[in-house]
């Protein structure tokens, strides 16, 4: 979009939206939508609250553990599936089911099995994230040009070297794509898990703020979680852009 002949960067439209938000909030049209400036002010109250710090730590721990396991297991499984046809044929059906299934339905079952605590949240994050990571890794490994692998073998590469020097690098664009989608899903898993459990972490705070209609704090929390997910996704995006130069010529 151009104004007076000068190109306006797209992200500025967000400023416009924020202005709209402010106006809507001030007019008290819906009590649900407080002015943006109030949300920013609420930030200080929320952040200094000890409960908040605890909640964040608990959530980050759960998220970190769940994502860590999902990453390691997902990539390994994906590579295995990409290289060994038998594994692929037996597992790909399940992969395709779970990558799009409403996994939220499983969370109550997880609560029943693992109890109402941190473990359930970790398992939720793990389950939400792992399928897409595996699927994308598998796609990346399968898409490797066969002559690249033959080349490595023809120059005497050992099995290990083929994996570390060729396969992982050649599949890296897809692996990062899977990682990005997995992170997004993982955050969703974190939120869903904590909302359903509702007695700890951010879920507890969400519940608290909405019950007492502390909308400004609630929105701040929402924005925080959104920003977290966005930041993670952008981080991986940055990495993807760094390796884009070769993704195109494979």
């Amino acid at each position: 979009m151009t104004i007076l002949g000068k190109k306006v960067p797209m992200m500025l439209s967000l400023v416009v939206w924020l202005a709209v938000w402010e106006l809507v909030g001030r007019s008290r049209l819906l009590f649900l939508i407080p002015p943006f400036t109030e949300i920013l002010k609420a930030a200080t109250t929320v952040v200094t609250n000890a409960k908040f710090v605890d909640a964040v730590i608990i959530s980050l721990k759960a998220f970190g553990m769940g994502m860590g396991i999902a990453l390691v297991a997902g990539i390994s499984l994906g590579v295995l599936m990409g290289r060994v046809k038998i594994v692929e044929q037996s597992l790909s059906m399940w992969l395709n089911v779970f990558v799009s299934a409403p996994l939220t339905a499983i969370v109550p079952a997880l609560m029943v099995i693992f109890g109402i605590g941190q473990t359930t949240v970790v398992v939720t994050v793990l389950l939400f994230a792992i399928w897409v990571i595996t699927l994308d890794t598998q796609a990346g490994v399968k898409n490797i040009s066969p002559s690249l692998l033959e080349m490595a073998r023809s120059f005497g590469a050992s099995r290990f070297e083929v994996y570390t020097k060729v396969i992982l690098w050649a599949a890296l664009p897809e692996i990062l794509c899977g990682l990005r989608l997995g992170l997004i899903r993982g955050v969703r898993g974190l939120v869903v898990g904590q909302l359903l459990i509702a007695i700890m972490g951010l879920g507890e705070l969400f519940e608290l703020y909405s019950r007492y209609f502390l909308m400004d704090r609630f929105w701040f929390l929402v924005i925080l979680v959104f920003a977290f997910a966005f930041a993670l996704a952008e981080l991986v995006n940055y990495l993807e852009r760094r390796i884009e130069f070769y993704a195109r010529t494979r």
């Binding site: 797209m10 439209s13 997004i184 969703r188 869903v192 909405s210 609630f218 979680v225 997910a229």
Partner: peptide
């Protein structure tokens, strides 16, 4: 577009209580 770019990575589940 910027709105949707942000929203595509956001856990919309957080808005459900609203």
């Amino acid at each position: 577009l910027p709105v949707f770019i942000i929203v595509q990575s956001a856990p919309m589940a957080a808005l459900i209580p609203l």
